[in-house]
């Protein structure tokens, strides 16, 4: 068994208005980051996972992300694996 640190990043789909992202972007501009654009606020779900291989871990996590961690109607996600 190998062990991985898994990071699932969930963000609002590009076509969905993200009022939180807009508010953060306004504040970023006020703080001097004037060239900022397309700010989105999402979620990071991080956990450790034991699995026989990176491929197996990725498949399991992707399945769960699709079903549970992200709502595919309004969100998209990406999965990052780091072997310990």
């Amino acid at each position: 068994m190998k062990e991985f640190v898994v990071r699932v990043l969930v963000e609002p789909k590009p076509e969905l208005l993200d009022p939180q992202g807009q508010a953060v972007e306004r504040a970023l501009k006020e703080l001097g980051l004037t060239t900022v654009s397309q700010t989105r606020v999402g979620k990071l779900i991080k956990f450790k996972l034991k699995a026989v291989s990176a491929q197996h871990a990725r498949e399991r996590v992707t399945e769960i992300a699709q079903k549970f961690l992200a709502n595919p109607v309004i969100e998209r996600y990406s999965v990052e694996l780091e072997e310990l």
């Binding site: 609002p12 208005l17 009022p19 939180q20 109607v73």
Partner: peptide, 17 residues
């Protein structure tokens, strides 16, 4: 019910936050 797929669509955070 939307999360369970028993109703279509989804409920996102209010636009006015």
């Amino acid at each position: 019910l939307t999360e369970a797929g028993l109703l279509p669509g989804a409920l996102a955070p209010n636009l006015g936050r």
